[in-house]
Amino acid sequence: MAKKAKSADNVLAQNKKARHDYIILETYEAGIVLTGTEIKSVRNGRINLKDGFARVRNGEVWLENVHISPYEQGNQFNVDPLRNRKLLLRKKEIGKLLGATQGSGITLVPLRVYLKHGFAKLLLGVAKGKHTYDKRETLKRRDQDRELQRVMKNHG
């Protein structure tokens, strides 16, 4: 029997808009506290990180506004799709996050959800909001890089 080919960390969901709207200063890997039906939905890739954010409250980090669709066969065991979920981090990391979010314009943004050794993990980014001119600059630089790659490919 052949082994299953391992993809890049078994990525289940990505927040592509976060890298467009924010400058990512630091990233942290955190575990997520999920119920049985939630983990089954996450494994099926039925999670939306688009409007999500994290907040430090009472020495704990909570993931808010992330939608995990109810599991089809879950019936009475399904929970609210938008409920707040606790993130598992070390005390030292939580202290760093608390200090980082005290600054103005700094927020905690979920970047990616993936499976690691059978557990759902979240890549959490410490982010600073971009202005519209920063976004335009990023798009312009990406287009220039793409054009340069095209020219190099044709001449090479």
Rank of each mutant, 00 (worst) to 15 (best):
M1E: 07
M1Y: 07
A2L: 00
K3Y: 00
A5M: 07
A8P: 08
A8C: 09
D9I: 08
N10V: 08
L12N: 11
L12C: 11
A18K: 04
L25C: 11
T27E: 10
T27I: 12
E29G: 12
A30W: 01
G31Y: 04
I32Y: 06
V33C: 02
G36R: 05
G36S: 05
T37M: 14
E38C: 04
V42K: 05
R46W: 08
R46I: 00
I47D: 05
N48M: 03
K50Q: 13
D51H: 11
G52A: 09
G52W: 01
A54I: 05
R55Q: 15
R57L: 11
N58P: 02
G59I: 01
G59S: 03
E60G: 01
V61S: 01
W62C: 01
L63S: 01
L63T: 01
L63P: 01
S69C: 06
Y71K: 09
Y71V: 03
Q73K: 15
N75T: 12
F77K: 15
D80W: 01
P81R: 05
P81C: 04
L82P: 02
L82A: 05
L82Q: 09
K91E: 14
E93W: 02
I94C: 06
G95V: 05
L98R: 14
L98Q: 14
G99V: 03
A100Q: 13
Q102R: 15
G103H: 11
S104I: 09
S104F: 10
S104D: 14
L111P: 00
R112K: 15
Y114N: 14
L115M: 15
K116C: 06
A120W: 02
A127M: 13
G129N: 12
K130E: 08
K130V: 13
H131Q: 07
H131C: 05
H131Y: 09
T132R: 15
Y133E: 15
D134F: 00
R136K: 14
E137R: 06
K140R: 11
D143C: 03
Q149I: 03
V151Y: 00
K153Y: 06
